[in-house]
Amino acid sequence: MTRAILVTGGNGQLGTELQRCAWPDGYEVVAIDVADLDLTDTGAIAAKVAEREWAAVINGAAYTAVDKAESDVVTAWAVNAMAPAAFGEACAKAGIPMVQVSTDYVFAGDKAGAWEVDDPVAPLGVYGASKLGGELAVRTSGARHVIVRTAWVVSAHGNNFVKTMLRVGAERDTLMVVEDQHGTPTSAADLASALMAITLRLVEDDSAPTGTFHFSNAGPTTWAGFAREIFAQSASRGGASAAVKGIPTSDYPTPAKRPANSLLSHDAIGAAYGIAPRSWQDALSDILDELIGANK
């Protein structure tokens, strides 16, 4: 019997990579996006989960326009909080596990060092607050669940920091990039692999660890440091290159306040699932191989 995994956000970075993962024989990934399911319609969500015998649900869809969320509060909360609530309730009724993807934005960003999974949450804006609402909804839904917080997601697909730097770097000699926000880039492919491993355990082992975990790639940097590495690796492949001048966040005002520190601890996911992320530099190399080609 085929075990079908329902994946939301199918056209996004993570959804794309979940479909590219090497799932074991006997598993089928059914990826849907906004054209297939309106995430502001909780009744439609319940019907989607009830329409067939899913093995698990991975909710990778989200309202991720961080700045727009500040003025589009109701939609952000509908997608980021009420939709997970509906998925959680439906998964509980169906007796199937749910994997919810969350974000570093649930934290205030004011801690020195990496955030642990049980550190106090204090989101700075609507996006983080609505994603925290989704976490709380899933936790209280009664569904067996895993919540995975991540940060700074990039890939060869969609819109993200790597692709923006390559595009703008091809047009300008020098770029101004924020240097006082700290975190770790996350390869969508590496995140997808971690979510696949977790989902398989949840499906096949009723005693698999549940709760909240963090996943990003390994090693700290800043947005400016990330940009410099992108251009160094791009130049070695014959791609775009530009000088990067670090600037403070105050020189780049945005409607939504960003966490100053987004570093996520991997202790919990390592202890529970044996997942040890590789360096963000190695993950970036794979993305640039796909976008530009291998080193020349």
Rank of each mutant, 00 (worst) to 15 (best):
M1R: 14
R3G: 05
T8H: 12
G9V: 05
G9R: 03
E17C: 09
L18I: 08
Q19H: 06
W23R: 12
D25Y: 01
A35L: 11
D36C: 12
L37N: 12
T40W: 05
D41V: 04
A44V: 10
I45A: 09
E51C: 06
E51G: 03
R52N: 00
A55T: 02
V57Y: 10
G60C: 12
A61W: 09
V66M: 02
E70V: 01
D72K: 00
T75P: 15
P84K: 10
C91Q: 11
G95V: 01
Q100E: 15
T103R: 05
F107C: 10
A108P: 15
G109D: 09
G109V: 00
K111E: 15
A114N: 10
V117T: 15
V117F: 13
V121F: 11
L124C: 07
Y127V: 06
K131G: 07
G134M: 13
A137I: 08
V138H: 13
R144M: 04
R144A: 04
V146T: 09
F161I: 03
V177Y: 10
E179D: 15
G183I: 01
T184N: 03
T186V: 07
D190H: 11
T199H: 12
P209T: 03
T210Q: 09
T210F: 11
F215L: 06
P220M: 00
G225E: 01
G225S: 01
G225D: 03
F226M: 02
R228D: 01
I230F: 15
A232G: 04
G238Q: 10
A243F: 12
V244Q: 07
V244C: 09
I247E: 11
P248T: 14
T249I: 03
T254Q: 02
R258M: 02
P259E: 08
L263H: 05
L264D: 11
A268H: 04
A276D: 10
R278S: 09
Q281V: 02
S285C: 08
S285W: 07
D289K: 06
D289V: 00
L291K: 11
K296G: 13
